[in-house]
Amino acid sequence: EIHIRTNGEEQARKVYKMLAKRNYDVKIEQHNGQWVVTAS
């Protein structure tokens, strides 16, 4: 499982799309105001 911390919604969405293209199961979560993308 991969966790990627991003500094904002826009970046989180870019990372989300990139990983989704590679057939990862991707989730975006917010932790303490930080956007974290989780891929498995």
Rank of each mutant, 00 (worst) to 15 (best):
E1K: 14
E1G: 10
E1S: 12
E1F: 15
E1R: 14
I2G: 02
I2H: 05
I2F: 13
H3W: 13
I4S: 02
I4W: 08
I4L: 05
I4H: 03
T6P: 03
N7M: 08
N7A: 11
G8V: 12
G8I: 13
E9L: 15
E9F: 14
E10H: 08
E10V: 10
E10D: 09
E10M: 11
E10I: 10
Q11D: 08
Q11G: 05
Q11N: 06
Q11E: 12
A12E: 00
A12Y: 01
A12P: 00
A12H: 01
A12W: 03
R13E: 05
R13K: 11
R13S: 04
R13I: 08
K14A: 10
V15N: 01
V15T: 03
V15E: 02
V15K: 03
V15W: 15
V15G: 00
Y16R: 05
Y16G: 10
Y16A: 15
K17G: 06
K17I: 12
M18I: 10
M18F: 14
L19K: 01
L19N: 00
L19P: 00
A20Y: 07
A20N: 05
A20M: 13
A20G: 04
K21S: 12
N23W: 14
N23T: 04
N23P: 03
Y24Q: 04
Y24P: 04
Y24I: 06
Y24T: 04
Y24M: 09
D25H: 13
V26N: 00
V26D: 00
V26H: 01
K27R: 11
K27D: 03
K27E: 04
K27G: 04
I28R: 01
E29V: 11
Q30R: 10
Q30Y: 14
Q30L: 11
Q30K: 10
Q30M: 10
H31M: 12
H31S: 09
H31I: 15
H31A: 08
H31F: 12
H31D: 09
H31N: 09
N32P: 02
N32S: 06
G33W: 03
G33K: 05
G33H: 07
G33Q: 04
Q34F: 15
Q34N: 07
Q34M: 12
Q34I: 14
Q34V: 14
W35S: 00
W35I: 01
V36N: 03
V36H: 08
V36K: 03
V37Y: 01
V37A: 01
V37D: 00
V37R: 00
V37I: 09
T38P: 00
T38Y: 09
A39P: 02
A39D: 02
A39R: 04
A39E: 02
A39Y: 14
A39T: 07
S40W: 13
S40Y: 11
S40I: 12
